[in-house]
Every structure is written in structure tokens, then in C-alpha cells.
């Protein structure tokens, strides 16, 4: 986490001296480091999921974004967004896996707009993702590519949190046990239709709440949620 924080602080200082030209992005960059001693439901989170082609940001593209806010311990559906990226370069099997058809894409937004909207949603919120490294990798690359901006935010990863919980309880871990739906199952959450960015973001947000409610005591503090990077 210290690494993220150091990078983030460096970027913050840099952008403080030379404000980022886009005010939306500047607001995100200028937002302060969260109070890590606060309880999880005293702060606001944003559950995010990306659908991408491939696993490598260097060769892959973001096909769609889905996010929803988990503010003070509850999901707010008025904040839910699902953005399909309008790009002619979409190819390969990923589109099939993700049930994205050409008709879906025609109503998409371009990548910079999507990133700006996401930045606005992430301002004063902490991102939550399931298996975060993949998504943060794509996001970081996209922000750098589109705006020349360094994006570093402390992030909660439900996969990591769940893994930690299971590991603490010294369970043997068969494969797939950390898949989103398998995690949800353990908390009595209904099964979701995977591979739609918004539904996955929602599923991740619900899992995050369930994990937190099962944490014990008053619930986890922000520092208990954030991942080391």
C-alpha cells in the first residue's frame, strides 16, 4: 500500500504544481488520501468492473465499464452505469465471451468520455474490484494513454479479501473457490449472470458488503479493506 501511496503522492504533488488541464480529472487527482482508520461504512466506495479483450493492457482493449457506488454501506442504484466502448478495433474471442454484439457497440461512448465519467464517479470514493490487478492495469494504461495521466488509487480487492479470510480460517482451497459466484454463494448471495460489466460490478459490491458484515466487531476499517500493491 505504501508504494501506491508514494506513487499517488508524487503524482498529486506534480499535479498540484501543474494542474491537470481537464477539471474532472484534476478533481480526482486532488482528492485526499482516505482516513484509513475510518470504518468501512463511514466512507464511500465504487464497485467497478471492466470487460476487456485479453489479459494484457498492452495488446488488449477495454470493451465496457460497469460501476455502482457503495456509499456508507449501501449500494446506490442511481449511480449505476454501464458503458460500452465504441471502438472499431474490437476483435477476437473476448467479444463472444462477453456477449457483446455489434448492435450493443453501436450505442457506445468513446474511451476518453468513459474514463472521464469514471473519474468523476471515483472522486471521493475508493474503488472496489474483484481481482483488481487486471482491471487497475487496464485503467492505468488507459488513463496514461488517453490523458498522459498517472492514475493511482488505493483499491479494495474482494478476491484478496476473501482469500485472506479463508486462509485465516485455514481451509484448504480447491480451484475456483475465489470465483465471484463461488464467493457470493458462501454469503448466501444469489447467483448472478456473469460477464456483464455492471452486473459484475454489482455482484462485487454486494460481495464486498457481505464480506464486511461478516468481518466481526464493528466491521473492518478502511485499512483492513485496501490491498497492498
Amino acid at each position: 500500500m505504501w508504494l501506491t501511496r508514494a506513487r499517488r503522492e508524487r503524482a498529486r504533488r506534480r499535479y498540484a504544481r501543474h494542474p491537470f488541464p481537464d477539471p474532472t480529472l484534476q478533481r480526482l487527482l486532488a482528492s485526499p488520501w482516505p482516513d484509513t482508520n475510518a470504518l468501512w461504512d463511514e466512507v464511500d466506495w465504487l464497485a467497478i468492473d471492466l470487460e476487456t479483450t485479453g489479459l494484457d493492457p498492452k495488446t488488449g482493449y477495454i470493451i465496457s465499464f460497469g460501476w455502482v457506488a457503495v456509499d456508507r454501506g449501501r449500494i446506490r442504484l442511481d449511480t449505476a452505469r454501464h458503458l460500452l466502448i465504441d471502438s472499431r478495433n474490437l476483435v477476437g474471442d473476448s467479444a463472444t465471451i462477453h456477449h457483446i454484439r455489434d448492435t450493443d457497440r453501436s450505442e457506445g461512448v468513446d474511451l476518453p468520455s468513459a474514463l472521464r465519467m469514471l473519474a468523476r464517479a471515483m472522486t471521493d470514493r475508493l474503488p472496489v474490484m474483484h481481482h483488481a490487478p487486471l482491471d487497475t492495469g487496464f485503467l492505468r494504461a488507459a488513463y496514461r494513454e488517453q490523458f498522459g495521466m498517472d492514475w493511482f488509487q488505493p483499491t479494495a480487492d474482494t478476491l484478496v479479501l476473501e482469500k485472506k479470510r479463508l486462509f485465516q480460517r485455514e481451509q484448504t482451497m480447491p480451484g475456483n473457490v475465489l470465483r465471484l459466484n463461488r464467493c457470493r454463494e458462501r454469503y448466501g448471495l444469489p447467483e448472478t449472470n456473469a460477464h456483464n460489466a455492471l452486473e459484475d460490478a454489482l455482484a462485487c459490491g454486494e460481495l464486498f458488503m457481505a464480506w464486511a458484515r461478516h468481518f466481526g466487531g464493528d466491521g473492518p476499517r478502511v485499512k483492513d479493506c485496501l490491498s497492498r500493491v
Binding site: 454501506g73 449501501r74 449500494i75 446506490r76 442504484l77 442511481d78 454469503y187 448466501g188 448471495l189 444469489p190 454489482l202 459490491g205 454486494e206 458488503m209 457481505a210 458484515r213 461478516h214
Partner: peptide, 30 residues
């Protein structure tokens, strides 16, 4: 649906007259 919120609560959780938010609660599971 836009106006709705989703919450997750543990077994034993109590909603009563002191619950901050009054409104309609629909059980999705549980």
C-alpha cells in the same frame, strides 16, 4: 429501480422504529 439501494445484513440484525431509513424493504435473499 434507480431510486433503490441494496444492503446486506447479518442474521439477527434488527430493523425497528429507530432504524434511520424508513421505506420498503424487499428481500432479495434471506
Amino acid at each position: 429501480v434507480h431510486e433503490m439501494e441494496i444492503g446486506y445484513f447479518r442474521n439477527g440484525h434488527v430493523f425497528n422504529e429507530n432504524t434511520r431509513d424508513q421505506g420498503l424493504r424487499i428481500l432479495r435473499s434471506g
